[in-house]
Computed example of a mutant assay.
Amino acid sequence: MQLDTDRFLQDLDALRTIGTYRTGVHRPTFSPQDMESRHWLARRMEEAGLDATIDGIGNVFGRHRGRGPHLLAGSHIETQNHAGWLDGALGVIGALALARAGLPVDVCAYADEEGHWGDFLGSRSLVGDLTEADLDAARNRTTGAPLRPALAEAGLAGRPRLALEEGRHKGALEMHIEQGTQLETGGLRIGVVTGIVGIRQWRIVIEGQQDHTGGTTMRERRDAGLAAVRLLAAIDAEFPKVCAERSVWTTGRILLEPNLPMIIPGRAELVFSFRDLSVEVMDRMEACLHALVRESNRRERCPARLEAIGRSEPAPCDPAIQAALRGAAEALCPGAWQEMPSGAIHDSQVLARKLPVGMLFVPSIGGISHHWSEDTKREDLELGMRVLAEGARRFLQA
């Protein structure tokens, strides 16, 4: 294995020039900048001795030409809007560096992990969990535009979609920035991921009565906004009694209708989610949520309705891959690493349905991600690359 960390950093720097926004990148899926980056990556794969293909959903796949056992490694290269330069790109360029080092690695940039058009379109397509009907129904989350014309405009219409080859891969690896502060706060440089959390997402709809803010007495009001606030406060008070240490919950969207300062809200719609690595813990949180909605309906004048809108199961990382990464981390940065769960979701969660998976984290400065100021120290990027390569070597030889 002849790892070239200088070339690894050069490739990262080159990729960030495509779609540059301030110190970050703006490369939404299937945008001109995104497609430019995919073709750039395919050329780099060919230079590294891989057979490169861009498939019908935008996956960029570099196939190793030699004998196995093979690893699958990668992440994504599209970004959130006006976001960072490392989220996703680090895992793809790290995988490319593994191939350049001579390891039997297939490299993949999975399309649309960031969800501009759906949920994990690229990795779901690879594992056989994306139908033609799913493609017909897919819409852009910002504009509502259908996916099919966007694929045609990107030059992908009519191309076949790749599928994982049965028995080819011993496992799948993904290197990523932490997107949190645990490593930085602890003075650590490497995180060996134990598993990827599951997510349960809900829509909470509260129906009230739209009315005048001055003419309607407090006794008469059915204020959906106040009912929503009280329900969210109850959730925040009760969830700590049933959650685990790393459980998290978020109200990412609050819509009030008509959302005008002189009108009592007649309707509130909330998008609420929670995450944990344990199904048992999430079951407790779900039961608590249902109980709190029932209690709200008993007390409030505005009835609340709970709708499940999304669910992903936790994905434990493979013990053998974890052991290889732990051994590599201890050899290269003794005492400066830890095991940790991933609180964010990744393509590896989808790949885990078919393959043993493992992930490696490097620190995020200030924990910042999904923002153009996202960054990681170059020495931490280089160390992460060395640990990934040594972990891959150990796992392949095990």
Results as ranks from 00 to 15, higher is better:
Thr5Gln: 10
Asp6Ala: 14
Arg7Asp: 14
Gln10Arg: 15
Asp13Leu: 09
Gly19Asp: 06
Val25Ala: 04
His26Leu: 05
Pro28Cys: 08
Ser37Asp: 06
Arg44Phe: 03
Gly49Lys: 01
Ala52Asn: 04
Thr53Lys: 09
Gly68Pro: 10
Pro69Glu: 03
Ile77Pro: 02
Leu86Asp: 01
Gly91Asp: 03
Ile93Gln: 04
Ala95Glu: 01
Ala99His: 07
Ala101Trp: 02
Asp106Pro: 03
Val107Tyr: 00
Asp112Thr: 02
Asp119Val: 15
Ser123Val: 11
Ser125Ile: 12
Val127Trp: 09
Ala133Gly: 10
Ala137His: 10
Thr142Ser: 12
Thr143His: 09
Pro146Leu: 09
Arg148Leu: 15
Ala157Phe: 12
Arg159Gln: 12
Leu162Cys: 07
Arg168Gly: 13
Glu178Ala: 11
Leu183Glu: 07
Gly187Phe: 00
Ala233Cys: 12
Ala234Arg: 15
Ile235Met: 13
Asp236Ile: 01
Phe239Ile: 04
Trp249Gly: 09
Thr250Tyr: 00
Ile254Tyr: 08
Leu260Trp: 03
Gly266Pro: 04
Leu270Val: 09
Val271His: 14
Glu280Leu: 06
Asp283Arg: 13
His290Trp: 14
Cys302Ala: 14
Pro316Leu: 03
Leu325Asn: 02
Arg326Ala: 13
Gly327Met: 03
Gly335Cys: 05
Glu339Asp: 14
Pro341His: 10
Pro341Met: 14
Ser342Val: 07
Ala344Thr: 03
Gly358Trp: 09
Gly366Asn: 11
Trp372Lys: 00
Arg378Glu: 15
Glu379Asp: 14
Leu381Asn: 07
Leu381Tyr: 10
Gly384Phe: 10
Val387Tyr: 09
Val387Ala: 07
Ala389Cys: 14
Ala398Lys: 10
Ala398Val: 02
